[in-house]
Computed example of a mutant assay.
Amino acid sequence: MSLTIDVVVPVYGNWPITESCLLHLRAQSVRHRVIVVDDAGPDDTLERLATGFPEVTVIALEQNLGFAGACNRGLAAATADIVVLVNNDVDAEPELLERLTAPFGADQRLGSATPLLFKPDGRVDAYGICADVTLSGFVRFNGATAETAVRDGGEGGAGHALLGPYGAVAAYRRFALEQVGDFDEGIKMYGEELDLALRLRAGGWSTIAVPDARGTHLGGATSGRGSASQRRKAGYGRGYLLRAYGVLRGRHALRALVTEAIVCAGDLVLSRDLASTRGRIAGWRAGAAAGPRSRDIPGVDRGIGFIESLQLRVGDRQG
């Protein structure tokens, strides 16, 4: 019996990008249901959905809940075996959903899957995420060629170990999410998919990279890159996870402290503000209310050393 598929698309304004995303989803080669969650957006998305995409299930939020909250409302409405989260700034190739969800039928312990996403210029945008021993997450193969990602990004490849999917497109077994919980709404933006990947792996669920499931991620079209707001939110997520997972109480505390100090100092020098530092402080305070997290997490790449982790941060859009 084939697995059923629900696709959750959180949106906040920017109709032209949302329309392109939905048109690409409409052209998919496998049956699915699309759930659009309008996060109290400022434009006429709801009206345009009603007239142009009547087949789409629409959830209209009365107040803005942020990425995690919007996704969770969509996940709560999902009833399919597999739920695929798709950012509205992603154009999926026609067979992305079919290929991305196929491995779930062969492995009952497969909890998540990631596609190969490209930038508009043809370089790789993301092939899932990895994490070092301080639980700092990085996008895999950002800026690489497709050939390199496919060659090195699979199981046993030379690339960094896959922890879980990148948030722009992420497929999850709904039963796995019911077991470990949905996105932590205490994280305002950046880090939600890392936290969920950590919890899924700690819960015994495996993950896979699917090289022939592909799409284009416009990247930053809805939130901007490098702004003070983006760096503050990224810092918030990092501070939250440091507290939630007790990283500063573990064996890698010194490395984590030194790394965060370097990152914050670099942000001050390059950007001439304290957005990253203030975000980390706020996130650290909020992380005290997070639920308990396991520190025994398969999939963490212990081969990512201190220097390499700093180098990875230089090119990582999430700071």
Rank of each mutant, 00 (worst) to 15 (best):
A27C: 10
P42W: 04
A77G: 01
A50F: 09
G69V: 05
L22I: 08
C71Y: 00
A60D: 15
T51V: 15
D38Y: 06
T101E: 07
T57E: 15
P94M: 01
A40C: 13
A60H: 14
E19A: 15
G69S: 00
L100P: 10
V84H: 00
D43M: 06
L65C: 06
G66N: 11
I59S: 11
I17N: 12
R99H: 13
R99E: 10
N64W: 03
A50H: 14
A60V: 07
A80P: 05
T51H: 13
N87G: 12
D39Y: 05
C21K: 06
T57I: 13
E47N: 12
D43V: 07
L46Q: 12
I17K: 11
E95H: 14
I17T: 13
R48M: 11
D43Y: 00
P94N: 04
D81S: 14
P54K: 10
E55Q: 15
T57N: 11
V56G: 10
R31A: 14
T45W: 01
V37M: 06
V34Y: 05
A70D: 03
A50S: 15
V36M: 04
A27T: 08
Q28I: 07
I82T: 10
V36Y: 03
P16D: 11
P94C: 09
P94Q: 01
F67W: 10
H24D: 12
N64S: 14
W15I: 04
E93C: 07
A92F: 06
R26I: 02
A92S: 15
V36Q: 02
E95G: 13
T57C: 12
D91R: 13
P42F: 02
A76E: 14
C71F: 04
T101Y: 01
H24I: 05
F53T: 12
A40T: 04
G74E: 08
T101K: 02
V84C: 05
A78T: 10
R48C: 09
G52Y: 01
N14H: 12
